[in-house]
């Protein structure tokens, strides 16, 4: 099997509403800004990723919508101002969603195989829906790393604990929306950190109003203001992620 030119990283919430779309978008921009070639795919039917990249609410076309309509995928590659390439999901009516299961099982890898990355270090991020809504889209396989995004809440902790047995080598974790003012959150954070291998914990992002403000301005916090705590945290995450991806490739 020929060597892949890209690293496939899946970002998935352990449950719904933990903010993995925001994490994906910010991580993508941070990775892009530290010099990687970045491709982002939105696999969430809510089609929110595009909002982080400056795409208007009225634009509803996207990759999955196109695939259903049998249009070429190249039509749906967009670029934001940092030259991050992203593929929005596209707005699909409820009735059409079911038709997604008829797509070829490896359509993502097929698309990626068609791209010539010109041997640049490329990271492909996939914003993947949480476990609850798995049935809606294809299950991915063959990824290099999977980032399990959770919060420091009891429900997240229970999900973490329940799925820990099925975790593989390429599963890592990160906490989003950490609120230090709440005692329970710091306790759960300590609990989860102590239960898992520390090298598997990617990092922590605070519950930060700046992130919400950035989305309101149709962009990411990393892009909007590099000096905020959250931007710096995303940079740290990006650096750590890249070291995980490229150190394991063995030189």
């Amino acid at each position: 099997m020929p060597e892949k030119d890209y690293k496939l990283v899946v970002v998935q919430g352990v449950k719904g509403g933990v903010g993995n779309t925001a994490v994906t978008a910010n991580l993508a921009v941070a990775l892009r800004k530290v010099g990687f070639n970045v491709l982002v795919f939105d696999f969430c039917k809510s089609n929110d990723l595009r909002l982080h990249f400056g795409m208007g609410l009225d634009r509803t076309d996207g990759l999955h919508k196109g695939l259903l309509n049998e249009e070429p995928w190249t039509n749906f590659a967009f670029e934001d101002r940092n030259r991050t390439t992203f593929f929005p999901f596209g707005h699909i009516e409820q009735v059409d969603i079911l038709r997604l299961i008829f797509l070829s099982p490896n359509y993502l890898t097929d698309i990626l195989d068609e791209i010539d990355f010109e041997s640049q270090e490329t990271i492909v991020l996939v914003d993947y829906p949480s476990y609850n809504s798995l049935k809606d889209t294809k299950c991915l396989s063959g990824y290099d790393l999977k980032i399990n995004v959770g919060t420091c809440e009891v429900s997240s902790y229970s999900k973490f604990s329940a799925s820990i047995k099925s975790f593989t080598e390429s599963d890592i974790f990160m906490f989003n929306r950490y609120n230090p003012e709440r005692k329970i959150e710091s306790d759960i954070r300590t609990l989860i950190s102590s239960e898992f291998d520390p090298s598997k914990v990617l990092g922590v992002i605070f519950e930060d109003e700046f992130i919400h403000q950035a989305l309101a301005q149709n962009t990411t916090i990393v892009d909007l203001n590099e000096y905020t705590k959250s931007s710096k945290d995303f940079y740290h995450l990006a650096m750590k992620l890249s070291s995980m991806l490229f150190a394991s490739s063995g030189e």
Binding site: D208, E209, F210
Partner: peptide, 8 residues
Amino acid sequence: SKSGFIYE
């Protein structure tokens, strides 16, 4: 901050 903004 009280309004939820995080600073380093």
